[in-house]
Design a protein around this nucleic acid. Sequence first.
DNA 1: GATGAATGAGCCTTCATTCAT
DNA 2: AATGAATGAAGGCTCATTCAT
Lengths: 199, 199, 199, 199
Amino acid sequence: MKVRNLKPEKRAAILKAAVKVFARSGFYTSKVSDVAQEAGVADGTIYVYFKNKDDLLISLFEDKMVDILQNFRDALSGIVHAYKKLERFLYIYFEMIRQDPLLAEVFQVELRQSDKFLKDYHNQNFLDYLNIIGDILHQGVEDGIFRSDLNVGVMKIMIFGAIDEVARQWILGADAKYSLEEAAEQVSKTILNGIEIKL
Amino acid sequence: MKVRNLKPEKRAAILKAAVKVFARSGFYTSKVSDVAQEAGVADGTIYVYFKNKDDLLISLFEDKMVDILQNFRDALSGIVHAYKKLERFLYIYFEMIRQDPLLAEVFQVELRQSDKFLKDYHNQNFLDYLNIIGDILHQGVEDGIFRSDLNVGVMKIMIFGAIDEVARQWILGADAKYSLEEAAEQVSKTILNGIEIKL
Amino acid sequence: MKVRNLKPEKRAAILKAAVKVFARSGFYTSKVSDVAQEAGVADGTIYVYFKNKDDLLISLFEDKMVDILQNFRDALSGIVHAYKKLERFLYIYFEMIRQDPLLAEVFQVELRQSDKFLKDYHNQNFLDYLNIIGDILHQGVEDGIFRSDLNVGVMKIMIFGAIDEVARQWILGADAKYSLEEAAEQVSKTILNGIEIKL
Amino acid sequence: MKVRNLKPEKRAAILKAAVKVFARSGFYTSKVSDVAQEAGVADGTIYVYFKNKDDLLISLFEDKMVDILQNFRDALSGIVHAYKKLERFLYIYFEMIRQDPLLAEVFQVELRQSDKFLKDYHNQNFLDYLNIIGDILHQGVEDGIFRSDLNVGVMKIMIFGAIDEVARQWILGADAKYSLEEAAEQVSKTILNGIEIKL
DNA sequence: GATGAATGAGCCTTCATTCAT
DNA sequence: AATGAATGAAGGCTCATTCAT
């Protein structure tokens, strides 16, 4: 009658540690024992809460994606105008990055690895995420706000890639020396400019 | 003094094999022996031509980047107008992807990994590449073709991210079902639309 | 002083579960948690009743051996003739196997493992068991029923090995397709034939 | 063009070391690194020659079994009389044990473990071995030398078990204090006595 | 006593790299 | 230069055991 009574806060602590460690060293060069140490638990405890190292990364992704999706849906639900919606979406995106850059790095840097992840592991949450953008674009086209020749399938990916990379370079702090606010405004203006119907 | 008598064609064969293998399985999950097998050489031969596994990936990147940069410079040298230059740049970009998707995948998927590469290893070629875009943008702003409030540092990265992701999803063939031609046109139109001065 | 309030029926349940699990998967490839699950108790409970995993196997053996020995002694006590005694012994042996094949498999398969058990752990019960056979043989020789040149030390082991293996192959059900009844009769006839004095 | 050029003598050395180590400590409590050390090679070398630890045990068994089978066939080929054949078989058996007790212990003690081995892994060599005995019995029955009511399927297993256990206890040196010569003679006499037709 | 989450020692296995041929 | 057998460091994962509840 084994009743699983795992502590959600310990699971969360491990995920949080994993974010930190993976962001610092990358998934493959990170050791499970590094995550354990960061989380202040024994190595074996990781395996009480996660199936294996891969599962740690996937869980990380899925867990947070659910929150993110909810975040976006809540924030956008009250807005009717597609233009305003997209503007708001972009604002929220960069705001989230600002608040949790480590996590963002794990998402962006690590989940790009095809094998085992975005390739094999088919990711519904990621598709849902893309479709938030897609839905806004669709609506905008229907409402006659965005260009009628927009290929939404292409555009949603383009927008994702654009903001993702701008955020990523900001996090890495490498070449790009700009504030996220500035970036958000620039990206927002250009994209909205680029897709709206010109008068 | 050790006189090296290395055969450039063998080096090239190994790099070509590395592209294939890394694209298929990812850098970390690929084995040096996989690359050797694909190249038709012995494991040890890899180490005659490259210092280690990391060097293989970096060499891959640098070698090809030099070609790519030359490609762009040649193609853009005859064009004076910034708008046409950017249009041409985007066209060439997607054309390259179409011709060598495997290589593109290695670039895009694997070089995103921070550790040891884009983070520690400071990549001048990548910066040069970004600056091709940057230079076009600068010129366009100076020529009064692109919006004067463009933050070129943000925009060049945004454009890179946009086209990179569109190409990447096309390669992965996952959600995105579109032709590269269609994508090129869509991306081109939106970006140019977005950054040019509205009349 | 710690006053133990252990429930004998729980201890028995654990041992019974251990028999099942060890027989199914072997001692080393079985997990303590498998035994716990099979017994319907928590992992930790095993350690309330047994010192460790090894102790579980040894207890299993010793507990059951006491029963088995008593069984044999009861059954043989009324028989005077050595020939009849041995005949009866063999009959009872196969009958026990038939009634509890799982346990038999644990005995036969697992206790063969030298390390920690039959080698280090000196097993008086096993010796007592062998000596039931040995005593019958001794008596038979003294009574002039069995060959006077019998080396009882060898013969008791030979008989043990013979019946053990016949039973074991029957349990495994591998190559051997025979009924235990048939086997018992064959073995009995051959052994008795082989050791009795020829007229 | 990777040409496997593994050295058979190194493979043999590893197997020999494995015999020693497994006999000493048992398969499960032995470490691969113990075998490597005993063989004087690096841990990794084991995996050049064998797939994994299990494969080491199975290879051990199969390799030696082939030799043993050949040994028996050669030795028995010149003998026509079934009685003499069986007598010779038993003599050779104990002689082999005497010459290589360690190997015998691995066979007898370790291969009894059901899981992964005699159970899952279906073993043709073992069956061939049993059938050497079986064939002699068959012939003896047909030639009117052995009892016509012999169930060969039971008897071959009984004989195997008998000699196996006698040898095993001799190796363990536990309770049984007898010479192998004495044992061979005792077992041989009893079995032959037991199965031949009484006049 | 019973529980099961937590522990961490230990081991198999992988694979980048070396080096004798 | 080319080879590939050999190496051994390193790490993911298991699971017997403990102990706070």
